[in-house]
């Protein structure tokens, strides 16, 4: 469950923000286990930009076990350009495009929540998961309980994932389906 050394998780701004807001950055570290947790330069840039209004992002920036990686090889830049074509406009969504580019070039798992980014990952055969996927992994590994993640899961399903589940229904579903 905790991954092989050499495997990497490359995380987008959104999931980092959700985890930090819930006070679960440590959980991310535990779930990652032997896997390296990476943040591309574009995500770091988005975190810095958002940190003045959302202080929990500052906490992510100060986390030393998250490695920073600047995408600068020709293959990384080509992959970044490829994903940008679907996602980026102006300065928006550059974090997602960078996460997908890193994951593609390095065979890492992208941690992304947005629907278009997940679709782009699927099309490009990039491995991906999201905030809820990580939380479920944490529950399975015993770092969190189902009850603890229930309200964050409900919120994610209602907003970002557009899943037809009401408050409290995730917990029920997970128990019935043995998903965690």
């Amino acid at each position: 469950m905790n991954g092989d050394p050499g495997e990497e998780l490359v995380v987008d701004t959104g999931p980092l923000s959700h985890l930090a807001e819930a006070g679960w950055l440590g959980v991310l570290r535990s779930v990652a286990g032997a896997r390296k947790v990476v943040v591309p330069d574009a995500v770091e840039y988005e975190l810095r930009r958002g940190a003045s209004t959302r202080p929990h992002l500052q906490q992510v920036l100060g986390t030393e076990w998250i490695s920073r990686s600047a995408l600068d090889t020709p293959s990384e830049n080509a992959a970044f350009a490829h994903f940008s074509a679907f996602l980026v406009s102006g300065g928006r969504n550059i974090g997602e495009a960078a996460v997908l580019a890193y994951a593609q070039v390095h065979g890492a798992t992208a941690v992304i929540d947005d629907g278009a980014a997940r679709r782009a990952a699927k099309e490009a055969k990039v491995r991906y998961t999201g905030t809820l996927g990580l939380l479920c992994e944490a529950v399975r590994a015993g770092f969190l309980t189902l009850a603890m993640v229930s309200s964050v899961a409900d919120h994610l399903m209602e907003t970002e994932y557009r899943l037809p589940f009401g408050p409290g229904e995730f917990e029920k579903w997970a128990q019935e389906n043995g998903a965690v």
Binding site: D41, N77, A97
Partner: peptide
């Protein structure tokens, strides 16, 4: 030194161009 993806994005935004135009 090589140009980073973030810099590509910033240059594209400043020039009002698209990032993929630099490689396609």
């Amino acid at each position: 030194r090589r140009v980073t993806a973030l810099e590509l994005a910033q240059v594209a935004e400043a020039l009002d161009e698209r990032i993929e135009w630099f490689v396609e």
